[in-house]
Design a protein around this nucleic acid. Structure first.
Length: 263
DNA sequence: TACCAGGTAAAAA
DNA sequence: TTTTTACATGGT
């Protein structure tokens, strides 16, 4: 959402591969063209339409682990957040607790500090801006069932964005490793958090969070046949074969794991 | 009760 | 350099 008030609602028709997407924009106090352009960019990033999946398919259609999965989930991309800021906060909230709990807290933060817009009798709540979080006391943030470490981390990220020391457009110009280095300078943002933010926030297709529980446990045991949890270093080494699409490979591996769990 | 859940930082080995 | 430990909370 830009200045003023803009609501974007999206509906998909047809198959994920050959469907159409209807986007409705309700805007007040903004130029229609600007709102349209902003909405288009937002939808494109969240769907990951610019991710190079063709190159990924060409390179790995015969991959032992992913070949079949690629055909099964044709069209799947890395799902994106609306901003790097939102992706970073979501990643911090997701550290070491079950995701259901993390998303509960994210919703509560949005309800408390997010922007609101009403359209057609319905009220929509947006993710808070960095400034709205930056001005809260840590003790206030901790009432949202955050550990001291998470409150510090989220406040640190909020201040970095609000103060301009961290900017999405600057991070977007950096290489993966440079971007990780820049973000992990903030206390409470470790390598995993920075990697998830780049994957979900910027749709970086070669990011591989090797320490992720989903990688060292579920991928290692569920798809690679390990008896016990793998080491981060071992998974990072294993992922080398998927360059330069390690992030896309991971998303497809997770899709396959979810499918196996269901069946 | 104890352990696990898409970790991090600091201390200890 | 690698391995523990405390940290918050909810579910099983």
């Amino acid at each position: 959402m830009g200045k003023g008030s803009t609501i974007v609602s999206v509906a998909q028709m047809g198959s994920p591969i050959r469907g159409t997407l209807e986007v409705r924009i309700a805007a007040r106090g903004v130029e229609l063209e600007a709102a349209r352009s902003e909405a288009r960019d937002l939808v494109r990033r969240m769907l990951g339409v610019t991710q190079d999946i063709r190159g990924f398919y060409r390179a790995f259609r015969n991959d032992v682990l992913l070949g079949e999965t690629i055909r099964r989930f044709r069209g799947l991309r890395i799902a994106g957040s609306a901003s790097l800021w939102e992706a970073l906060v979501t990643a911090i909230l997701s550290q070491q607790i079950n995701l259901r709990f993390a998303y509960d807290i994210r919703r509560e933060l949005a309800l408390a500090f997010g922007r609101r817009a009403t359209w057609d009798g319905e009220t929509f709540v947006g993710f808070p801006r960095p400034e709205a979080i930056a001005r809260q006391r840590k003790s206030t943030l901790r009432t949202f069932r955050l550990s001291r470490a998470k409150a510090v981390a989220i406040q640190g990220v909020a201040r970095a964005f609000a103060g301009g020391s961290l900017r999405e457009d600057e991070i977007a110009r950096l290489s993966d490793e440079e971007a990780i280095e820049k973000m992990t300078a903030i206390v409470g943002v470790g390598r995993w958090t920075a990697e998830i933010a780049l994957l979900r926030g910027l749709g970086r297709v070669d990011i591989f969070p090797a320490a992720d529980l989903g990688v060292v446990k579920y991928l290692a045991q569920g798809l690679l046949g390990h008896k016990v949890r793998a080491r981060e270093s071992a998974m990072r080494r294993y992922s080398e074969r998927w360059r330069p699409y390690r992030g896309l490979a991971l998303v497809y591996a997770y899709a396959e794991l979810a499918r196996k769990r269901k069946s």
